[in-house]
Amino acid sequence: MPRIKVEVDGVTYEDDVEPRLLLVHYLRDRLGKVGTPIGCDTTNCGACTVLMDGLSVKSCSVLAVQADGRAITTIEGLGIDGQLHPMQQAFHEEHALQCGYCTPGMIMASLDLLRENADPSEDEIREGLEGNLCRCTGYQNIVRAVRRAADDMRGAAKEVTS
């Protein structure tokens, strides 16, 4: 069984894993990091989105062995300093979630979206989140939340640099 070394939310783990083990099952069943849910089995819904070395991936379509030597950030790795991440805060403020099942993936995908485009238009946000499905919100407040987070995060970046 291959041995992998992977950093997840700032903690380094070393484990023997079956080659076929999905990253999302490794996170959930082996590490107990159940903040990342599973919504489908065909990579369509995006509920399981995490960041791998800062880029969003759907953790149901990544094998645990592919994460060897990488750094994974899940929803549980945000706001660990006791303060909500601006993206989490924006989702709360704008009522961008109802049942919340898509939310971890939606937040992680939105972070990657803003990494690529710090000031997206509404259409760009909609296109950017095409791989993440939500059944509750009709996306309207998610779009607003990402817009709000973009403003907040750019504002914060300006404060740091000025």
Binding site: V34, G35, I75, E76, H95
Partner: peptide, 21 residues
């Protein structure tokens, strides 16, 4: 009112049935 439910849902602290071990 902003929802009190959100606190756990936006931080991955949710208890979905599949999370139960």
């Amino acid at each position: 009112r902003k929802r009190s439910e959100d606190a756990r849902l936006i931080t991955g602290k949710t208890q979905w049935t599949d999370n139960i071990q």
